[in-house]
Design a binder for these strands. Structure first.
Ligand SMILES: NC(=O)c1ccc[n+]([C@@H]2O[C@H](COP(=O)([O-])OP(=O)(O)OC[C@H]3O[C@@H](n4cnc5c(N)ncnc54)[C@H](O)[C@@H]3O)[C@@H](O)[C@H]2O)c1
Ligand SMILES: NC(=O)c1ccc[n+]([C@@H]2O[C@H](COP(=O)([O-])OP(=O)(O)OC[C@H]3O[C@@H](n4cnc5c(N)ncnc54)[C@H](O)[C@@H]3O)[C@@H](O)[C@H]2O)c1
Lengths: 226, 226
DNA sequence: ATCCCTTTGTGAACCGATGCACAAAGTCGG
DNA sequence: CCGACTTTGTGCATCGGTTCACAAAGGGAT
């Protein structure tokens, strides 16, 4: 049953909007630090690099938090967006695969700043297991399930080689994890109920190369006949 | 007779398609290595994690390279996609900011595997400048313009702190770079003609948190009135 | 050569997202 | 208290992208 009248805000926020909320949040934090207390949709849109109509429509999905003729209260909007994104609680993140990338992630401060806490590091290599990285002990992959339960991990970051990713993925899902951030260049197969987001550097570069080639070749490029 | 005019393929490939081509390419490489010579849209779609109608429409933008009743020739399709993406030439990439992340990227093998070559590392920290990382000498940021020209860099990866990103960005654009991959959590301001792609880990986590919260709270969650 | 079977390539309906443009809502100065 | 001004919130047209569904193309068997 829907309860259209009783809820102040729409429960179905478009995916595209969700993806932009963190952007607004970042811009708002910057403004808050610079002492700005109120901001118009136009100014915030510029700071976030989007169109102001889009920004207003995005915010309207959360509720009606602006004041016409004035704009939005920075602090209040930060709170509303944070709450909507679930950043008022903190999330325990496990990083599986503590190689080049996993280490960089573990040492990254920007994580913690927004309600995310690296709660566990897990690796298969006996050389690495037992090391302390970013103040955390690296645990053995055999302990994966135990560690996830013990630390209350709800988001898993996969930074293992591609070949190991699916297996690790299956295991964490089996113990109830439903949110995965995957850096390995493989298509993970997961149940409908699990969210996977992927970051693939190589794909980003290939997209850049495509456009770069267009620019370089441009209208004058001799397109080889075959 | 395939190409009656000299332009066999459509020059306007949808952005969404471009973003998926690398995915197909990866799946095709895997198949090639496993000795598969021919693949149907259905099988390739499964391997790439997309819908087969979408895959066929995507490929149709490059030309008509399939055989009805049979499928696509793996090797030939790899070649066509590679060419379309501009991967038949190799691209010199510079990494600016050789900290946690920059180092991980520099040491990453997956770069080279697809026509990308890390041609330069640049940093501002005197501690780091002069070090050899992944076989490359780290150069000083003062040399940025000279290095980019000398090495023929056409793609720049930004892995500096957020505060330094815009300045570096302006400088590389000034010497003709038009493709940038940005890891710093800032909105870069660039001319129309420059392509910027961003990778923001923190945003990915926030999106996961949003959905995680929904799942956890689910239909039973007591939505607090405020 | 003909028929049957498989699979492509694509027209058309559909869907979500974008951006314009403006009425409604609120502020602020007088 | 009023009227001018600012800025929000949204209806609506539009657009790019997805999906369905099928005619046309080609291969292989007989
Ligand atoms: N480094 C980068 O810049 C980069 C960029 C894009 C993608 N990636 C991808 O990220 C992943 C990690 O890259 P990397 O450069 O850190 O590689 P890496 O080899 O340095 O690290 C991989 C780590 O995973 C561990 N591991 C292997 N099998 C495991 C298992 N079954 N369970 C747990 N841990 C296991 C290894 O011991 C190692 O420590 C790879 O899939 C890579 O393709 C890396
Ligand atoms: N490490 C991660 O996992 C991670 C994840 C997401 C985003 N990021 C972002 O990536 C960027 C780099 O992160 P990091 O963890 O490697 O930081 P880091 O501090 O380890 O490295 C930054 C490097 O940039 C160099 N630098 C500073 N100013 C410079 C300048 N003007 N020109 C050239 N080099 C300069 C520093 O000397 C340092 O070596 C940051 O913006 C960070 O927010 C990092």
């Amino acid at each position: 049953m829907k309860s259209p009248s009783s809820q102040p805000r729409d429960r179905g926020i478009p995916e595209a909007t969700v993806a932009r909320l963190p952007l607004y949040l970042r811009a708002l934090h910057g403004m808050g630090e610079r002492g700005i207390t109120t901001v118009s949709s136009e100014d915030l849109a510029v700071a976030a690099g989007v169109n102001s109509a889009k920004l207003r429509k995005d915010l309207s999905h959360l509720g009606s938090y602006g004041t016409r003729g004035v704009g939005y209260d920075v602090e209040y909007l930060v709170y509303q967006i944070s709450r909507e994104l679930g950043l008022t609680q903190d999330w325990a993140v496990a990083i599986v695969g503590v190689g080049n990338l996993g280490r960089a992630l573990a040492n990254y401060g920007g994580f913690v700043s927004r309600g995310f806490r690296v709660a566990a590091l897990v690796d298969a290599d006996p050389e690495v297991v037992g090391d302390t990285i970013a103040g955390l002990n690296v645990e053995h992959i055999d302990e994966l399930e135990a560690v996830i339960k013990r630390r209350g991990v709800s988001i898993v970051v996969l930074a293992t080689p591609a070949a190991a990713a699916q297996k690790v993925c299956d295991r964490v899902i089996a113990v109830g994890v439903t949110s995965i951030l995957n850096f390995a260049p493989v298509v993970l197969s997961v149940p409908e109920s699990v969210d996977v987001r992927k970051v693939d550097l190589s794909i980003e570069l290939q997209i850049l190369a495509f456009h770069e080639q267009r620019k370089a070749g441009g209208p004058l490029m001799a397109v080889d006949g075959q």
